[in-house]
Amino acid sequence: MHGPEFHGRINFMKAGLYYADRITTVSPGYAREIQTAEQAAAWTACSASVRTT
């Protein structure tokens, strides 16, 4: 899976995350939470290309 493709179709949420320069969250705690293996499992394909700072 590369870019906006997801199971042969365009996924606009994935495209937004994939091509974003930065992703913000509502709090530092939520940012840490979504980076855990358990929470990130739903978007592993996208999160592999997301940089954290």
Rank of each mutant, 00 (worst) to 15 (best):
Y30W: 04
A37G: 06
M13W: 07
A20Q: 07
F12G: 00
E33G: 00
T44D: 08
A20G: 03
I34W: 03
A15P: 01
C46W: 02
K14V: 05
S27N: 13
Y19T: 06
I10M: 04
P28L: 11
H7N: 15
A40M: 15
T25M: 10
T44H: 05
T25A: 15
C46A: 14
S47W: 06
G3K: 14
H2P: 06
V50N: 04
I23D: 06
L17E: 06
F6M: 07
M1W: 11
P28D: 08
R22W: 08
E5N: 08
M1A: 12
A40S: 15
G29E: 14
A42R: 08
F6I: 02
I34H: 07
F12I: 03
Q35M: 00
R32K: 15
G29A: 07
M13E: 12
T53D: 13
A31W: 00
W43C: 03
A41H: 05
K14L: 10
V26P: 08
F6S: 01
R51C: 06
C46Y: 01
H2E: 14
V50H: 10
V50K: 09
A40I: 08
G16F: 03
P28I: 02
A20Y: 07
Q35N: 04
W43A: 07
W43Y: 10
G29W: 05
I34L: 01
T52C: 12
R32W: 08
S49T: 14
T25R: 09
R32V: 11
E38G: 03
Q39M: 12
Y30C: 03
T25V: 05
W43H: 15
C46P: 00
G8K: 01
P4W: 07
C46T: 05
Y19V: 04
N11W: 03
A31N: 10
I10A: 07
A48P: 00
G8E: 02
G8M: 04
V50W: 07
N11D: 07
Y18D: 07
T44S: 09
T52G: 10
Y18W: 06
E5K: 10
K14F: 11
A41D: 05
A15L: 05
R51N: 06
Y30H: 12
W43M: 15
G8C: 00
R32M: 12
I23P: 13
A40R: 15
A37Y: 07
A20P: 05
G3T: 04
Q35E: 01
H2C: 10
T44P: 00
Y18A: 10
A48W: 04
G8Q: 01
P4K: 13
M13I: 15
A15I: 01
N11L: 05
G16Q: 11
W43Q: 11
V50Y: 05
M1H: 11
R22N: 14
F6A: 00
R32G: 02
Q39V: 11
G16N: 14
E38F: 06
V50E: 03
T25H: 13
F12N: 01
V26I: 14
T52H: 08
W43V: 09
R22D: 09
T36P: 00
T36H: 05
F12S: 08
A20N: 01
M13R: 11
Q35V: 00
A31Q: 06
A31E: 09
Q39L: 12
A41K: 12
A31Y: 09
P4S: 11
V26E: 11
S47E: 07
T24W: 10
Y18Q: 05
C46R: 01
L17K: 04
H2F: 15
P28R: 10
D21H: 14
